[in-house]
């Protein structure tokens, strides 16, 4: 059974239909990408999953219906979203940001172990743990946002455009980390404009266009698809 199962998801803002009825699923242990151009409805889809915008359709996580639940309740069920623009708390320290990621957890020892783990994964954060997060560079903030989401031990981690606004070197670093997180067994759904990167690291992908899913399949196959190559890979 799929970890996440979405059927006929629709999202609209006033009269604008951002997502027009899409089906997708993520199985446990998979790394799935959602690619597409600006305004295709990718971010709206993620926000819909987390209850930040309301959606209609059938959305199930571990078989349980998520539609209509408050965001904090959805998070409590094991979903975590690293939002577009990272959403770090700039006036909290790095360490406090990580603590916020573990907000719903009560196991002190487990939190401590995971914090050590986060600092191993991102040594830059360890050096800066007492600094206000707002003083970090863009790439460091992205690292912090990912590390913070992992602190909640989510069963499904959603990343919204983790490469956005970062220097190429930093983008590679972030994606190496994402691959490593996936190897460790975390299930991931990554939204990305950079189709090249997305298809490289993921097992499966969905291609979104104007609020609908146009194509889907194994990433290596999509990467060879002439349509995709022309539209998203710049051939």
């Amino acid at each position: 059974m799929s970890l996440l199962m979405a059927q006929g998801i629709k999202i609209s803002y006033g009269g604008i239909h951002a997502v027009r009825g899409i089906d997708f699923e993520v199985a446990k242990g998979e790394l799935v990408c959602l690619i597409g151009a600006n305004g295709a409805g990718k971010s709206s889809t993620l926000k819909g999953l987390l209850g930040l915008v309301s959606h209609s359709g059938d959305l199930r996580f571990n078989g349980e219906r998520l539609t209509g639940l408050a965001t904090h309740a959805i998070v409590a069920r094991g979903l975590a979203l690293v939002p577009e623009g990272r959403g770090i708390f700039g006036r909290l320290t790095v360490a406090e940001n990580l603590d916020m990621g573990a907000y719903l957890r009560r196991d002190r020892d487990g939190i401590k172990a995971d914090r050590t783990r986060a600092y191993e994964l991102f040594p830059r954060l360890a050096e800066r743990n007492k600094q206000l997060a707002g003083t970090l560079s863009g790439g460091e903030q992205q690292m912090l946002a990912i590390a913070r989401a992992l602190m909640g031990r989510p069963s499904l981690l959603l990343l919204d455009e983790p490469s956005m606004g970062l220097a190429p070197l930093m983008v590679r670093k972030i994606y190496e980390t994402i691959a490593r997180i996936a190897q460790e067994g975390v299930t991931l759904l990554v939204v990305e404009q950079n189709a090249h990167l997305a298809l490289q690291i993921s097992q499966r992908a969905y291609v979104m266009e104007s609020g609908v899913i146009r194509l889907s399949g194994p990433s290596h196959a999509l990467a060879r698809d002439p349509q995709i190559r022309a539209a998203y890979l710049g051939d």
Partner: peptide, 11 residues
């Protein structure tokens, strides 16, 4: 700082 991100932390 951000109501939305706080919700995302489970607050």
């Amino acid at each position: 700082q951000s109501r939305e991100v706080a919700e995302l932390m489970g607050v």
